[in-house]
Design a binder for these strands. Structure first.
Lengths: 182, 182
DNA sequence: CACCATACGGAGACAGTCTCCGTTTAGCAA
DNA sequence: TTGCTAAACGGAGACTGTCTCCGTATGGTG
């Protein structure tokens, strides 16, 4: 990759992070290009689809996901507490940008999504939490890790779209957690 | 209202119903106008916002919601069965058009939404189910009817966006139902 | 320092939203 | 029937966002 290309690539990602934080994942890509000081062509060459850009932005975020799962597993609480810790972090991490929950959650079922690998990270992290609970026999056995991700993603999606705060989200997560344990 | 206005209004709603069924609630409104044989101006005069048109379409749907609640309440099953019957109908009714679950669920928290009255119908219908269960002492008491609507709306939203079938939805509703009962 | 593959960038095609305003028409009153 | 007017129409076009094409510029190499 040529040096100027690398510079532009990085600049676009940096600016996109700001713009998406301001306006959500639906922000204008031409505005991102303009603010990054490049032409639209340059942006679309590096990131043919909006989700390629989102994927690049999420790169730094992968570590946080793994840490969150770690943190949840490390805490020595009840299965319920474990679930709630993980769910809370999960929702926070996919809700960093407006539109994130919907995008990420629906990408989990789309094999061709450019952010597929990021979803994979979420799924494996969630899988570890689920496996632990499963081993303890705490979890009902008619749902798998993917369905749990969808459930929590659903809660995050409505919260994101209706602009609900953490206080409105917690009881919904409680319901899901209670429903999952037996 | 003048006769020609009435005619156009009805025609637009009729065509929109078809177009939205084909393409979801995000379909082009200019296409609706074109297929209805009116100019865009006419469409936008009758329906200043997309949701005004959606609201008009949902008019006939109100009865079905009330019938669904009726049906759920009439069945003489366990609280769990009652909830599942209602949830299943709820999801079906808000998922009739692609994009419906997200639109309806987020409108529940928007006092200015043109489809507010339709949401009200859903909420009162759901309220009756919840009241019954509450009276029986079957429901946990840290969640209200609105939060339950959001939870089920969340499930419907992810199912809609990820194109999940009824079989994938049922277990998620089971989890929610179990989590709500005590 | 010359060459050329690589990358740039902006004009512009295309699609969707929505408005403005000149034209048409329904409905009524004479 | 005719004439009038408020009501409604409709389409050109402004505006915004997506995305491409291609002439131009330049980084890196021999």
């Amino acid at each position: 990759m040529r040096a100027d290309a690398r510079r532009n690539y990085d600049k676009i990602v940096e600016v996109a992070r700001v713009v998406f934080r301001e306006q959500g994942y639906d922000a204008s890509l031409d505005e991102v290009a303009r603010r990054a000081g490049v032409g639209p062509g340059t942006l679309y060459r590096h990131f043919p689809k909006r989700e390629n850009l989102i994927d690049a932005i999420m790169q730094v975020w992968v570590d946080s996901v793994e840490e969150a799962a770690e943190k949840a597993l490390a805490s020595e609480g009840s299965p319920h507490d474990l679930l709630m810790t993980w769910f809370t972090e999960y929702v926070r991490l996919i809700s960093l940008h407006k539109g994130g929950p919907a995008k990420i959650t629906s990408a989990m079922d789309d094999p061709d999504s450019p952010i597929r690998t990021k979803c994979q990270v979420l799924r494996t992290a969630g899988g570890r939490v689920v496996d632990r609970l499963r081993a303890d026999g705490a979890l009902r056995d008619d749902v798998d890790a993917l369905q749990i991700s969808r459930l929590v993603g659903g809660v995050a999606t409505v919260a994101d779209q209706a602009d609900l705060g953490e206080d409105a989200v917690r009881p919904m997560l409680e319901v899901v957690a209670d429903g999952l344990l037996r």
